[in-house]
Simulated assay, not measured.
Amino acid sequence: MSESNLPTPQAGDLLISEPFLQDENFSRSVVLLCEHNSEGSFGLVFNKPSILRLNEIVEGFDFLDLEVYVGGPVEQNTLHFVYCGDKQLSESIQIGEKLWWGGDFEELKSRLKTGTFDLESIRFFLGYSGWAPGQLTDELTENTWIVCKEELNITAFNYSPEELWKSLLKNMGGEFKLIANYPTDPRLN
């Protein structure tokens, strides 16, 4: 695919890995692109649960047994979060119509303790996925990623990791619907 024919990714888009991507960090992954500009790109793998729970990694969250996802291979000692719906926290960055990245963590902590934040609408991530300037464009040229312009909403928070990857591709139709059914290892077919 030539660079001029590439879809232009932007914050809020989803990057769906091609079915045979061998990088274990991104195999069958869906990355929520939070930032894409001349300085590089930043995203969070939306469908890779970690083995950790929020109450195991954040002090003072003993009351909250929530799954934490692996946002990517970069700085896995950092915690990030996204939520959907109306803006609920100061300092949140809008990355979609009703999709927010980050925000005031102390405010979030307080809202979670008092039960005034919808747990179904938030997802936490350790680490992130990052691309240097031009790197994501190169990977798109190499057909490593499929850019999905579908708006991420609360239903995406409830899909299993494999279901999300398949469902997004099926919803895109055409050749993508076929890709959704590719076996993980075609040699076993």
Rank of each mutant, 00 (worst) to 15 (best):
H80G: 02
S29K: 05
L33G: 08
N143I: 05
V31D: 04
T137C: 08
W101I: 10
E91I: 04
P19W: 00
P186M: 04
G103C: 09
V30R: 01
T8V: 14
S41I: 03
P133T: 12
D104P: 02
G60P: 06
F42V: 10
K87M: 13
V31L: 07
D118P: 09
E18Q: 15
S4R: 14
L44F: 06
D65G: 09
N153T: 12
N171V: 03
K109M: 10
G115D: 10
S167W: 09
E107M: 09
L32A: 14
K149C: 04
D118E: 12
P73F: 01
E24P: 15
E97R: 07
T78C: 05
R123Y: 11
Q88Y: 02
L54S: 03
T184Y: 05
I179F: 00
N171C: 08
L152G: 05
E75V: 05
V74T: 04
L178C: 10
E75T: 07
E91Y: 08
L140Y: 02
E106W: 05
I146S: 06
D62H: 00
K87D: 12
V147I: 07
S17N: 11
L14C: 09
E24L: 14
N158A: 12
E97T: 08
N171R: 14
K87S: 14
P183M: 04
L64F: 09
I16F: 06
I154K: 05
A11C: 07
K87R: 13
K98W: 11
S121K: 12
L21N: 08
F63N: 05
E18F: 13
K166G: 07
N37T: 07
N171P: 01
L126A: 11
L140H: 03
F125A: 01
F46G: 00
L112G: 07
R187Q: 15
N143E: 15
L119I: 07
G71Q: 00
G103E: 12
V45Q: 03
L164I: 02
Y69N: 11
K170G: 00
D86L: 09
W165F: 06
S29W: 06
E151W: 02
L33P: 08
